[in-house]
Design a protein around this nucleic acid. Structure first.
Lengths: 374, 374
DNA sequence: TAGAGCCTGGACAACGTTGTCAGATGCGGG
DNA sequence: CCCGCATCTGACAACGTTGTCCAGGCTCTA
């Protein structure tokens, strides 16, 4: 019975959609209630069903499905018909169990919605796709515990590899996984207490260049608003800021640096404070794209011209008045490099963990070239 | 031997990190060559190994791992020690095979890097997380074949559900999957030739409002630059544009609409054409965020003031001169609603496919309120 | 002290696939 | 006509987990 009603072709689209007469054979839709009533989860057709219907052995179906040699065209045809008729789809879970590889990689980042991670994710996805793998991804929300939880869940799924933008600084929990052969690459920030591939931007150099740029334009009282120094990138950028100041022989006043603020409200207040008081800053260096955006808003409300250089590029930065000078990192290259290394690990081509540092680029657009408004 | 060197605690972090004496027991790092030499993929410890080491039966280990009742505290302790010592991690592939549910859902969208999809993905992820599921996602790059390929790959992994932003317009290939109980929700664009849940923005209404807004400010020659009408959202927005024009009794000149252009180069040319010639437009309605950004660039180069309303909000739109008036859709709500419906389908709470349309919001910031520069 | 009942633990099958290996079939040549 | 060989096919075990079911030991009560 089921055979009779489900014998239409599905997978190859050769359905003769005759709007006048075809209806009985090919119902356009099924109500969900129908579906649930007729099929409980798990009674999908299996290779066994296909084999029975085609009148062949189990292994023959497997051969057809996997394009292995040794099947007569005629037999293959019968099998394919059965597959189409039943709507069979290979169960990759079972396949994985048998074969050992899942053809999927995990990507753990901080926040899927952050524009910085969009291009990075896509780059990782593209490389994965080129290598026939799917991408499973999740956000840690900057929480080390959640990062670990996520990573271990991915390992339980037996992803072949992991691209991790770490939130925590101790990754020894990954030791058993690394030993078991899970390829792993850390991106954007280094791994903690573990020897693994790392792909980073030159946060220190980029920050130092940015601040040096401001100094070259005559600024001496330069503020820095950045994330918690617990985060490696934030710490490096802070270090770059300090290095540039020290190189110029400028002593940094406490009031000029604000660390760990991250929500717009507090960034706003931090900026306001730097801009007021007895010796207000004449320029601000912002530690990431979110901070930059907020500070742009604050500065827009001020009449006094304050110079600004931001870490990370932001869209439309060139159209603002003045254009926003930034230190841009190449998120796509970061992701692509990491993913490529991952697959080279899986190839066995890559044996020694390395630390790769990608250069940043100072893009001058106006805001960083404003003279001090003393 | 192996036992002796690997008996440190891993999973519960209770490692006595004694920097002076602890080193011999807990090696900080292993070279990857070591790992590959000693362990080929697949020889991870299994429950059987854990059982053998703890001197208990297989099922007892399973009970401990899954927190089932019926295990003496003392036995449980022995099992946990064995788990930690071996670095055992349950293989979810095997689990899935047995249980039938994978606790993962698939998200197919157009482009992970598009800022519109960032908040949407995150919303889906959050709901998934709240329901204990992982998110597998991929980009279709607006290619129907690739969409299908991706969706079917996800089905082969036996995801419990799918959130799809469709690229194609025929989804009958999903029939067997729906019958098999794969929960499915389409977002942003409707499903084709199949009866399924759909969550959309009110593209028609939003576009009509946008254009009516321009008309209310005195414009009559209004241009529209949008995506291929093959894409549902683009078609709806075009329809909204035309409806508003018709309501105002304005006949739309051919030269005013440009469809299917998508790369910056061609959008730029299309905009230039509208702005020149005998009867240039005095306002432009742009059909999506990418087009809007390009058109902003073009307009910035022109001296004549041209009004602009864009579909989709863009970051920093308020800081440009003038601020960019947009029709904003709520990507996060779109994603959240879809994901929530998905899990309600899985619950069995939800039986009838529905089409949900979310309102859009006109945000006036200046560019849409410019008078015609006739 | 015996019996009933409960609690813990373990043997075994099953999930759907793939690898191994041996059996069946057909063909051509001696 | 039969044998050998090549080609095609299928039975079976295994992957690592969980559900079922039963055995054995314990406690408690009569």
């Amino acid at each position: 019975m089921l055979d009779a009603t489900s014998s239409y072709k599905i997978m190859d689209q050769r359905i003769p959609v005759d709007d006048r007469t075809g209806r009985r054979i090919v119902p356009e839709t099924h109500s969900r209630a129908d579906r649930l009533a007729t099929t409980r989860y798990g009674n999908r057709p299996t290779m066994k069903d296909v084999a029975a219907r085609a009148g062949v052995g189990l292994k023959t179906v497997s051969r057809v499905v996997n394009g292995e040699a040794g099947v007569t065209p005629e037999t293959e045809h019968r099998v394919r018909e059965a597959i189409e008729a039943l709507g069979f789809r290979r169960n990759d879970s079972a396949r994985v169990l048998r074969k050992g590889r899942t053809a999927s990689i995990g990507l753990v980042l901080e926040d899927l919605a952050d524009p910085f991670y969009g291009p990075l994710s896509r780059a990782v996805e593209e490389v994965a796709r080129a290598n026939g793998a799917l991408l499973i991804n999740g956000s840690s929300a900057e929480d080390p515990e959640r990062e670990q939880e996520l990573v271990l869940a991915l390992c339980a799924r037996r992803v072949d590899g992991l691209v991790v933008i770490p939130a925590g600084d101790d990754h020894r929990y990954l030791e058993p996984e690394l030993k078991a052969g899970v390829a792993t690459v850390f991106v954007d920030r280094p791994a903690g207490r573990i020897d693994a591939d790392v792909v980073l931007s030159d946060n220190f150099g980029g920050a130092r260049d940015a601040v040096a740029h401001l100094i070259a334009h005559g600024h001496r009282r330069i503020g820095f608003i950045g994330d918690m120094p617990r985060i490696h990138t934030a710490a490096e950028r802070l270090r770059g800021y300090r290095a540039a100041m020290e190189d110029a022989g400028i002593e940094v006043a406490d009031a000029w640096t604000s660390l760990g603020v991250t929500d717009p409200q507090r960034v706003r207040r931090a900026a306001e404070e730097m801009l007021s008081g007895p010796s207000p800053v004449t320029a601000i260096f912002t530690g990431n794209n979110r901070v930059t955006v907020t500070v742009i808003r604050v500065l827009a409300e001020h009449t006094r011209r304050v110079a600004l250089v931001g870490f990370d590029d932001i869209e439309l930065a060139d159209l603002l008045q003045p254009g926003v000078t930034v230190v841009a990192q190449d998120a796509a290259t970061l992701g692509r490099t990491a993913a490529e290394r991952l697959f080279r690990q899986l190839d066995g081509t890559l044996l020694t963990p390395e630390r790769i540092e990608l250069p940043t680029r100072l893009i001058t657009r106006g805001s960083g070239e404003l003279p001090p408004a003393d």
